[in-house]
Design a protein around this nucleic acid. Structure first.
Lengths: 216, 216
DNA sequence: TAGATTGTTAATCGATTAACAATC
DNA sequence: TAGATTGTTAATCGATTAACAATC
């Protein structure tokens, strides 16, 4: 209907809303205001209302938002109402850690296959899944209807793996390797760049914070 | 000298520049232009020049930037020219994975202590470090001059851990728990929220991409 | 010199926030 | 009704990009 372009910033906030709403629902809260959400999530209430309003009129004036209804709506928006199958490539420490988060992210994104280029890993079990060789990627991706790939290989191999994922028809990549990946523009790449997060954190340490710091 | 406020967006790009410059240096490239950097990092060259210009005149007109000089400068800006000591709290799969990245992030951020609330983990060795109980946090932080904490505990415990880190005098936190943490504003919190990254990725999957997608 | 590329200003674009009428 | 809170417009703020003089 509305051909309004939704900005990335908005989309990135939706999972944050969802997460907190799930908590509220679990503790039997029925309604929530943008005010409440803003306080809990350190966001401006107006921003939250605006974000949600892009997708519909989900609230009631004078009342707020119905928690369970809003959960349902956000899940629909994010397409978490249907299961997305995920392939994980790279079975080092991080890959193994993530495959355990599988249950945690039970939000309908499910790791259904695990790959590793290292032949010696072949056949190893990781969280109920057998480690497959990269040569099996294309066929497995098709058979299991995999649409998302997670990359947890060393930086030098990441672009190569990304290329293989793209060749296997995958349209979304969550990249943990500390490198900027190239892909056709119909492939969406999100980078979980915690080394960059850590290094940028250093910038803010021990700063004398000029004159404008209002310590109490 | 210049009291110009540097935006977060700028600071977050610096480690990305640094990373690629290190690669260039390793392969013996002497100079680089904002054009080159932009192409490799998917960024606008003007943005890169502007980012760097906040901190000084690092380039030469008609020539570009000296790679090693720029590395040195960015390291100074990010304060990576002196070692920052880091405490890691939470020794689950992710915590163990990260402590192995330690050598990787040898950029002068060093995990010097590991903590876990679980008594049964106490005394276990992780990557040459003995797991300490949370009660040892405050004293250890002071003794080892720890300024940054990494949180890899379950979401329900994260805020509690953050409070303890703050109480121990830590001013920077890298949080891996999928929750929004509260802290005094002189404490800098970066969140490595890969579950949110993954869920927001779902939004972009299978989209019919309206009419404007130029598939070939 | 001619070509390349910076540093920087101005223009554009986009995102956040404030404000408030509508209304529950 | 009075109080609360949404949805939305307008105002503000900030970040990105274009353009170009300076200059190597």
């Amino acid at each position: 209907m509305k051909p309004i372009k939704i900005s990335e910033a908005v989309v990135r906030r939706l999972p944050i809303y969802l997460r907190y709403l799930n908590e509220m629902s679990a503790s039997n809260n029925k309604t929530v205001s943008s005010q409440d959400l803003g306080e809990k999530l350190n966001l401006n209430p107006a921003q939250i209302r605006k974000d949600l309003a892009y997708f519909g009129e989900f609230g009631r004036k004078g009342v707020g938002y119905n928690v369970d209804f809003l959960i349902e709506k956000i899940r629909q928006i994010l397409k978490l109402d249907k299961t997305l199958n995920v392939a994980l490539v790279g079975t080092g420490n991080l890959g193994r850690a993530l495959s355990n988060y599988n249950n945690y992210i039970k939000d309908n994104m499910k790791i259904v296959a695990v790959f590793d280029a290292d032949e010696s890993k072949r056949g190893t079990m990781i969280n109920h899944l057998t480690v497959l060789p990269m040569t099996a990627l294309e066929q497995t991706a098709e058979q299991l209807d995999i649409s998302v790939g997670i990359i947890t290989v060393p930086a030098q191999e990441a672009q190569n793996v990304a290329d293989q994922l793209v060749a296997a028809g995958i349209h979304g990549i969550l990249n943990f390797a500390p490198v900027v990946l190239k892909a056709p523009k119909d492939v969406r790449i999100h980078t979980a760049d915690f080394t960059a997060e850590l290094l940028s954190l250093a910038y803010y340490m021990d700063h004398n914070h000029s004159q404008d710091e209002g310590e109490m």
